[in-house]
Design a protein around this nucleic acid. Sequence first.
DNA 1: ATAAAAAATTTACATTGGAAATATAACGGA
DNA 2: TCCGTTATATTTCCAATGTAAATTTTTTAT
Lengths: 217, 217
Amino acid sequence: MLKKNDKRYHHGDLKSALIEAGLAELEEKGLAGVSLRGIAARVGVSHTAPKNHFDSLRGLLTAIATQGFEIQTAEMRRGVEDQPPGPARLRAASNGYVRFALNNPELFKLMFSGSLKDGEDPDIKRAAWASYDVLRDIAHGLDWDKADNPGGPWRTEWMLWSMVHGYATLLVEGEIRRNEDGSLLFDMSDLMPDFGYLPEALKERPKPFQGEGMNDG
Amino acid sequence: MLKKNDKRYHHGDLKSALIEAGLAELEEKGLAGVSLRGIAARVGVSHTAPKNHFDSLRGLLTAIATQGFEIQTAEMRRGVEDQPPGPARLRAASNGYVRFALNNPELFKLMFSGSLKDGEDPDIKRAAWASYDVLRDIAHGLDWDKADNPGGPWRTEWMLWSMVHGYATLLVEGEIRRNEDGSLLFDMSDLMPDFGYLPEALKERPKPFQGEGMNDG
DNA sequence: ATAAAAAATTTACATTGGAAATATAACGGA
DNA sequence: TCCGTTATATTTCCAATGTAAATTTTTTAT
């Protein structure tokens, strides 16, 4: 039990404090402007103090991104329970995905940066999968993905994930036009129509794609 | 006319040489490892020489990304002419989009980085739109987007673009599983089924989304 | 109380992007 | 051809960054 002012070490819980400060610095200064020294200064410790809790800046960023996935998961789950199973839930979760990206653009970029974070870290892997599972579990409940898809669920999952993630990414990177007040022209409900039925081709057995012509030129 | 050894200035054409060197450095050392000094050293000039042609590293990266969009446009057009108008062309262009991303992953990341490049630069804007237009022009030729979409072409465009771009992004960032030899489990032809027909909801008139609940939390 | 471990600081260093001053080559006009 | 102007590139310098090593301070365990 930690009471008020019960700073057991010099700081008490520097590890959590650094992650919190990192989240704040991220949205204040942008992904490109974030620095280890800046985060440390925000907490009020020397710039080498983080070394005791994270092996490097990369490690700290990985922990921040992990927290990002947890927030994203919560945001996707928000509102899903209010909807009946089926396409409505898929739209609610998808809108949560986009909403999170819009509300935490720099964190979202970090989470999918690939080079700044350590994607092999067990914690971030677990958190990322938990977020992905929200979409996947709902998609698996849809009529068009019940049983007749013996090639595995990958195809329909990836189609949906690609659409949602692509839209969020393009919005966050400023590639897609918004209304003047910053609101969206379309949310995922508009972009992703009634998935109660889907083109028959999607139900065919998928064959592994061997990538002819994919690795030349 | 420039003959061999006709170095008119100290270098001759440093601007182009820097872009070329930057493209090479990018794929060799990755987006995170690229540096102005490294690019300059590769060409054999001092690290401040680029200043005469680009105001900053950001400017040089913007020029590199611009060239990237031009390569991407060519890659998308490759093979499109062989296909009859319609869904087949859409698949060919989409596969070109993904193929470019897989063959130039670091360049692709730079092109959509948002912070490293200057998205307002007129040249990069023109090049990016040219790439986007390949997808858009084909999409507009499809039956399901002929005339009854008075809300503008944005919705169908963005749905397709999101799917293609999202898939390319997730592949490049290593978020989507591949076969052991690096080939894809699905290409865009598998992911994007017969678009000869499409859910009726997509043909309804789109209404502007005002973003209720999008900016809270 | 004292030794051991944990946590944080100080100092130092290599690398980076950029600014300023200087040097060198190309060009244009007499 | 000569010379001044401009374009191009170098040298020197600086602040900021991430990291390593040595040191100091605090906590914990015995």
